[in-house]
Design a binder for these strands. Structure first.
Length: 235
DNA sequence: GCGACAG
DNA sequence: ATCTTGTCGC
């Protein structure tokens, strides 16, 4: 029998694009969440001039402690040789394999995942957050620091204010351009998989502390770039 | 043909 | 993404 693979990391750009178009149809944009007890953040960093890909996953307990501090339940870092260069629109083929390897080493299966990158706010509606969510069959939210496609008005100056990111001739709403911090460049929040945009916005704003990025993504970012936190967890 | 372009 | 010093602010 024939099974459409969720990914084949050795596809030519042309075939990768065709695969994205097919997979986009499987993405669920409505809520289908279980009770959330564990929130995860994922990000990918690089070492040695990009030769090594470093995937980081941080799992946090929900809800946070009184005062807003999140307790870290688990941290995983997975390193492997980089398999392909960065090509706008094909980011998932570069980053998802490493992210999946990191998830395999997780002891806790998170209920919701925030990914550094776009969800459906992508030319073919299959950004890295959607692709990863589809593969893991977990609810995911895309949290990007900049725009890949679409048009939008500048959101208001107050924290929490947002405008719609629209794309296509039909002005399809594909993300929320959110002012996560006053005076700071807004972030792009979009549906990854199994989460609606309103719900995605609620979760992201609930995880904002005094920073531009929500805690899950911020901590994964630091771990992937080996700034704060610790280093590798390899025995 | 000319820009735009997640990380 | 990554390379990097000082600097402004809580």
């Amino acid at each position: 029998m024939t099974t459409t693979p969720l990914h084949d990391w050795n596809l030519s750009p042309k075939d990768a694009i065709a695969l994205q178009k097919r997979l986009a149809g499987r993405v669920e944009r409505e809520d289908r969440l279980a009770e959330v007890r564990h929130l995860a953040g994922v990000d990918i960093g690089f070492e040695q001039d990009g030769e090594i890909t470093r995937a980081a996953v941080v799992v946090l307990a929900w809800p946070p402690e009184i005062g807003g501090e999140f307790s870290v339940v688990e941290r995983v870092v997975h390193r492997e040789p980089t398999r392909m260069p960065y090509i706008p629109g094909l980011l998932s083929f570069r980053e998802v394999p490493a992210a999946l390897a990191a998830f395999e080493r997780l002891n806790v299966r998170p209920d919701l995942v925030m990914v550094d990158g776009q969800g459906i706010a992508h030319p073919r509606r299959l950004g890295v957050a959607s692709h990863l969510g589809l593969w893991l069959d977990l609810p995911t939210i895309g949290v990007a620091k900049s725009r890949l496609c679409g048009r939008h008005a500048e959101p208001g100056a107050e924290r929490g204010e947002w405008t719609a990111l629209v794309d296509g001739a039909d002005d399809e709403v594909i993300a929320a351009v959110l002012r996560s911090r006053p005076r700071v460049k807004p972030i792009f929040v979009s549906t990854g998989h199994r989460v609606s945009l309103p719900t995605a916005l609620e979760w992201v704003t609930a995880c904002l502390w005094r920073t531009k990025l929500p805690e899950p993504t911020r901590l994964a970012d630091r771990l992937a770039s080996r700034r704060g936190g610790e280093g590798d967890q390899t025995p």
